[in-house]
Design a protein around this nucleic acid. Sequence first.
RNA 1: UCCGACUUAGCUCAGCGGUAGAGCAAUCGGCUGUUAACCGAUUGGUCGUUGGUUCGAUCCCAACAGUCGGAGCCA
Length: 462
Amino acid sequence: MLKRTKIVKLLSSESEQPQVLVKGWVKTRRDAKDFSFVEINDGSCLKNMQVIANNNLPNYEEIKKLTTGSSVAVKGKLVASQGGSQKYEVVAEEIEIYSIAPDDFPLQKKKHSDEFLRTIAHLRPRTNKYGAAFRIRSQLSYAIHKFFQERGFKYVHTPIITGSDCEGAGEMFQVTTLDLNNLPRTADGKIDYSKDFFGKEAHLTVSGQLNGEMYATALGDIYTFGPTFRAENSNTPRHAAEFWMIEPEMAFADIYDDMDLAEDMVRYCVKDIMENCAEDLDLFEKFVDPILKTTLDNIMNNSFARITYSEAIEIMKKSGKKFEYEPEYGIDLQTEHERYLAEEHFKKPVIVRDYPKEIKAFYMKLNDDGKTVAAMDVLVPRIGELIGGSQREDSYDKLVARIKELGMNVEDYGWYLDSRKYGSVPHAGFGLGFERMMMLVTGISNIRDVLPFPRTPKSINF
RNA sequence: UCCGACUUAGCUCAGCGGUAGAGCAAUCGGCUGUUAACCGAUUGGUCGUUGGUUCGAUCCCAACAGUCGGAGCCA
């Protein structure tokens, strides 16, 4: 029984082969005098396999009806191609037609706009560009796991549904099984969540960090890599309501270990994609971002700049550049500031650390100056903030004081504070938006185009 | 959420106060070891929705919806 061979393997074959079985979807068909060229793609790589269908095939009349989007299985000889555009082609001895796509198949043999392809997100992976994007997405996921596993980090599955509404990273989606048309009420008229599935309010996670810290203070070095949900009404090319985040956490580590890890990880992943997805990257350089490989080479071969927040403000003040928001100590860095630093001043990724405590989260470690916290952001050209991380406050008393200072409820953090109560250690970690990394390595400028089925405000088709 | 632009054929767009046009796609035919093949013909649209102004609206006005860009929030 002849087994199917994927096109990526056939095209890298050492020699011609007397009999192969190849299956795929028709990209285009061109009729010649006594035969047809049928180009098929099976998703295993960007390139198609050109099939020669001679008119002596018993179902040749059917073959001539093959349209873009149809599906076939082809048995035949793998031979060197007479045409210049491909190394091999398959001379068909038998073509089984699985399905002929009707003429309303929406993907044409031409370039489509990204906006249109979003309306057919279920079919867009059949295009060259999106096929390439999602092969890279797979490889990039694998690279993330390889990077951490090679360094002894343990992969922790933090919960998707969370009972704490205090993760502090943004608006949350509520999870409930209550009948919204008939809500149970308590005596004082409030919704009675004791009747809900979990007996209390539940939400989709906005970050696995707090849970991750618990496992870091047990397993040492851990990472999470999973979906994250934000109910922010953000309408930008860089935000989605459902996205994937990578959150490593290291016990016995400080902010400098954290920065080293972040830089190593970004450079490792870029290198991995350059090595393993060269053909797909070529497509993005050709059609999406003409300087993509220069940018990636730059990231791979140069160490990141490292400055403090104060230095960043000074650099911008002295730059003479006119900003819409004037840089001033105490304000958070605006998108324009981040991009100036990475794109114009340093012309490479830059890590900014030691931010004023007022503009950062409660769990970050207070520096000795009493004014700044050991936070760090990795800013990269074109994307802006790629990574946000910090050394965590490991002093029980200081953390409680900070929670109170911010008017938050200490009782809500009981289990989290236990990590500071029992064997507290210095530890640090960061969060990396996976889709932003995808945008970095592909040059794709809209987050909706690096998610298979993107979820954004007012958009949840498919 | 705020600011701005846009919404006309399957796709990309043009157009104009008197009910619409191109290229590509599709269909049919021709030619051909072709490469998003080529040549010819044909088909295809209640101009985003709802109101208003007007003798008459795809065109002017308003509201709404959606899309895109910028900002904020952040990853």
